[in-house]
Nucleic acid binder design. Sequence first.
RNA 1: GGCGCCGUAGCCAAGUGGUAAGGCAGAGGUCUGCAAAACCUCUAUUCGGCGGUUCGAAUCCGCCCGGCGCCUCCA
Length: 497
Amino acid sequence: MSLRLYNTLTRRVEPFVPLEPPRVTLYTCGPTVYNYAHIGNFRTFLFEDLLRRHLEAQGFDVLHIMNLTDVDDRTIKAAAAAGVPLAQHTEPFVRAFFEDRDYLRIRPAHVYPRATECIAPMVELVSRLLERGLAYRGEDGVYFAIGKFPTYGCLSRVERRELQTGARVASDEYAKEDARDFALWKFADPTDEQAGAAWDAPFGRGRPGWHLECSAMALQEIRRFGVQTLDIHAGAVDLIFPHHENEIAQSEGVTGQPFARFWLHGEFLQIQGTKMSKRTGNFLTARDLKEEGVDPAAFRMLVFSTHYRQQLNYTDEALEAAAEGVRRLGEFRDRLVEAAGAAEAARGADAGGDGLPPLPILPPLPPVEELRRSFTAAMEDDLNAPQALGAVFTFVRAMNRELDGGSLAPVQRGAALAVFDRVMAVLDVLPAVAEMDAEFRAWVETHLREREAARKARDFARADALRTELLARGVELEDGPGGTRWRKRRGMEGGGL
RNA sequence: GGCGCCGUAGCCAAGUGGUAAGGCAGAGGUCUGCAAAACCUCUAUUCGGCGGUUCGAAUCCGCCCGGCGCCUCCA
């Protein structure tokens, strides 16, 4: 069994084999930095994060490229309206994007090419297309002539596209030879100049069209390997047409090679059953979640609970359910660590490390072997994360049962922890550690000692009062045979007494 | 009008020809001073509806009902 992925190009699930194993070149369409990215954007980025992590867990050597669109109609308009240079407007949103990415535990791409820093390769691409007769100069820009590119439409399968009757045939398209042609380069207008969004080019001063940057940057980044074909190009479904279709035309028009071998598209996230819309206020940003104290692991869990090719309806109830699952996993791991000996297994240790499981003195536990097998099988089946999660929870219940029985040998517990951590390295859905200062910690310890004394004296009223007081500050207790364990609930302030 | 997706328990959600994973919520129980956590048991004779194909269908086909997306710069 090996990885199989749904390829939009063929509309089939196919075995994934990179061009030159173990290297995988992965290009994912990044954000347009005109505003804060919303949770729909992040659903897509999370799906890509899962893909990346799974590939790496399988031993692939991934080069992950994600572009930043820092020049387009919206960024220019906003910069011009604010009377500031383009870069000054976009920079805060770039920083915000990286912060949100880190908050959601999305692994950074290896490179983040920015459109404004890749003008030269874009100009080069347009020149080549003009030379080949695939592009032409119009009145307001350079256009790609799709009529000259016979395979146009192969990705979206809308060959000989019929324009919707009476719609979208805007009056400003007079400059095109064919209404379906798309802009490669837009000649500079006063607004562009004002925002500093204009560059000289042999075919006329202007700025790149949206689709151009992805082709130029992707080809530029993989040139180091001497190839002109990406292994995987991913994005959300709305990009299939026209964005990715146009990228194919631009790139293959120049290279004559397939632009990408696998095209992966994630479905939309919806809120309250409908598409997010800024107009109706029906949208959320990652920062909104952060401000509400949402554990990033809960959001990841929510996202991975639905297959990436299914629409996901975001609701508060679903997020709470996901948060409960996350809590359960964290609880389980804490138990396992305690049982396995806390020293070498502190939270956050590199879960992908090797050397485990150690000497098989005892036969491997069936649940451990089962998780190893079923998790991988689920993920290899077109990243079936919901099914993989099912395998994880089945493992958790079985292992909790073993832990309750108390008859596990240390080596078995270590093996269980190793496998569990390996799985978590892919999903990364363990609860965030609640932040608290030393003062708070001391306050908790004092109360715990006091409660312990009260319990010894069988003054349960006093003990329960202390427990209530602790709970009010988000501290939950668990009395066990080995003493009282406590845990800080996330999202409740844990300092400044 | 064209292309496409979806409808599985109170909620979320896998499963796409062989007799319904998993999570959340709920009920009862074990453990506990009481809790909490964990575990055990229970909770869809049934997969939007109606037909058809088949030894066998949630899974394939047809029709209908309901929801959603894309169709030029929106992840």
